[in-house]
Each structure stands twice: as C-alpha cells, then as structure tokens.
Design a binder for these strands. Sequence first.
DNA 1: CCGTATCCCTTAAGATACTG
DNA 2: CAGTATCTTAAGGGATACGG
Lengths: 112, 112
Amino acid sequence: MLTREGCPESVLAIKDALEALEGRWKLLIMLSLSLGNKRFKQISKEIPGITDKMLSKELKTLETNKLIKRTVYDTFPPTVEYSITPHGKSLEKVLEELYHWGQEHRKQVIGK
Amino acid sequence: MLTREGCPESVLAIKDALEALEGRWKLLIMLSLSLGNKRFKQISKEIPGITDKMLSKELKTLETNKLIKRTVYDTFPPTVEYSITPHGKSLEKVLEELYHWGQEHRKQVIGK
DNA sequence: CCGTATCCCTTAAGATACTG
DNA sequence: CAGTATCTTAAGGGATACGG
C-alpha cells in the first residue's frame, strides 16, 4: 500500500492526525474534556503548567477543527462551557492507548 | 482518582507520554520502523518532508528513550539498521488508533 | 552510506498586565 | 469569569555544505 511518492498511506494519515493535535496541550485538553464538560478555569486547574493564553489559543484551534464545542450561557458573570463533539469523542481511543503507554513508559524508562 | 494538585492521574501519565513523543517526527519514525526494520535512507524516503538533520536527531532521542535499537554492521560502506524495541512495539496500539482517527479526521474536517 | 556542522528564521510558549 | 494584549525568550526546524 504505497503512494506514488513511495511513502506508506498510513504515514500520510498519521501526519494529518498529528497536524491537528500538535503541540504540548491539545491532547491534554481533549482528555480533560473527555472526563466531562468543563469551564475555562476548571480545565486550567486540571492541566499543570498551562497558561491562560495557551489554553485560550488551543481551545480556539480545537473548536475550528470541530473537536470541541463552545457554549456560552447568557449570565453575569459570563459562563462558558466546553464539551467534546462526536468527532472529538473518537479521539478517546487514542487517549486510552496513550494513557496505557504512558504508564508503561514511566516504569520502563523514566523510573517512577 | 485525583492527585493532590487536583489534577487527574491520567493527565500526568499522558503528559509523560507526550514528552517522549513530542515534535512532528517521532511518531512517524516509529510507524515507519514498526512496518519493518530499515536503514537511514529508507526511513527518510518514507517520511515526506523530513531532513537528514531532523531524522538523525530524532533517531538519537528515540534510542535514548529505548524505543528503537541501532545496529551497525561492519561493512564498507557502513550499514546501519534501525529496529523497534519491545517497549517501542507497545506504541503500535497508539499508532493504530491514530491511523484510524487520522482517516476519519480527513473525511470529517479536511475533506480529502 | 550515514550522518555532522553551521547558519538562520519562524514559531511555541512563558510572564505579566489588563478588560468586558 | 473568561479571556486579550504585549513583550520576550527558547527551541524547533529548514537549507546548505561538508566529513568518516
């Protein structure tokens, strides 16, 4: 299953996936939201080290790519809730495998 | 299952995983090698856009993290073969899920 | 064949302060 | 509460040329 360029089709598919998920934060945000709908501050508290700026920026990108949904409630002070879309939900399998691998990696390499 | 910092344990495990896999190339290299042992040039040909410098650098990091193995054969010209370790092999599940998700993502969002 | 060595540029991302 | 704006630094990564 090679393309004309001599590169496996699977490489191309994963390259597209990685482009949508690149950076240190997107997958962590997706994980946080897959554990339940959350508000800005709640996500921020669950992800160690993320700044408001990065969270804000990444949320926008994820929304553009239709992985999450942003819902604004007309209250004062403003209430905004983030949730994952069906397409975003399909990422959960990736996250699960990554979770298992991360635990194994700690034992094998990091030594925690 | 929260840590003292109020952050889910799964977030920490995935954070560790992402640290070992960060960047645009590592997962693609792992994929290429999971399809079979390969030499430097062969990997390079399978991954569109990667430069020798980046490939060389990432291969070292992956070797340090015990995800791949580098074997040198004493020939002229030199022959070097890369293969995945058992720990690297455990990444294949992640790659499979990422592959499926990438295909879906193309249909849903990119429109290929 | 299998890389290294430079040089350079863009982007990610942290810190801090501020707004509707 | 839910973000923006601005500034700055570190790092990722590309182009090119060269070495064992």
